[in-house]
Nucleic acid binder design. Sequence first.
DNA 1: TATTTAATTGCAAACGATTTGCATTTATGT
DNA 2: ACATAAATGCAAATCGTTTGCAATTAAATA
Lengths: 146, 146
Amino acid sequence: MKKQMQPIDVESLLQDNGFKRTPLRIALLEALANSSAPLSVAQLVRKTKKLGADTATLYRALNAFEEEGLVHALNVDKTKVLYEIVRPKTHLHHIMCDSCNAVESVAFCVKSLNQQVVKQSRQFKKIHSHQLAFVGTCRKCLRAVR
Amino acid sequence: MKKQMQPIDVESLLQDNGFKRTPLRIALLEALANSSAPLSVAQLVRKTKKLGADTATLYRALNAFEEEGLVHALNVDKTKVLYEIVRPKTHLHHIMCDSCNAVESVAFCVKSLNQQVVKQSRQFKKIHSHQLAFVGTCRKCLRAVR
DNA sequence: TATTTAATTGCAAACGATTTGCATTTATGT
DNA sequence: ACATAAATGCAAATCGTTTGCAATTAAATA
């Protein structure tokens, strides 16, 4: 069974958001669009270098994309950020392997919790959004342990 | 109505975990134990300096505490980490203000979601833990907007 | 297609937060 | 009080990320 992923026209995506369509940007969005899991900055840096492009440019692109809402930054831990492309009408959460750091996306939502949260809170009247991440051990790592 | 917080004997906490009870460490854990919201590294650094202690020592302490499970690091965004003391039998989530970054802790759990997640996942059979964070605008900031 | 313009890039330097090595100090158990 | 390992301060090193600036390139226009 293979992953199912709606294709994204990254060139249009760039154009529609006022970005020039440069090789690095196209390659970046393409990489993110074709990955079922979020990609680490390190991975993207490697890809950038392979293309002979500059790392500073990558960071500029990622920040610009994030600012425009084309990508979403996932703060995994103190020293690691993962990026994923934003797919309209898809609200994602994540499961992460505590052994190999593999990340899988999970599509489902917990809006119903919002009111409970508000009820408990002293400072907050309304919730705009939430982040939810699960941690487990993936099959591969489970097998490796045995 | 004032916050309710169970006191923590930080000196015993240090001792029980094989740490020497030094002024900085005691002050750090005390600060975390008396705060209802997680504290940023910047805040802790300020406190450290006020005590005339070295920043490197603070980082060493925080890392050691985290490794021993005395504190928990909260990855708010790419450039900001918050620390909270771990209170046994208390499972916390958080609400954050998207305007002023105020953080409030919320005590409640969503274990029931775990099986749903596992059901959806291709790679994961079991969830160990999860993180959940909500984003809203706090009262103070709401008022400021009007 | 050639021309113009602002956006994008590469490079090197700057940056800030965190970490490290090492000599000195300190808390703790005896 | 003493011995010992742990913890500290200081300065230097390190890492990922950002910035300034001159050169290049994509896109709009003639």
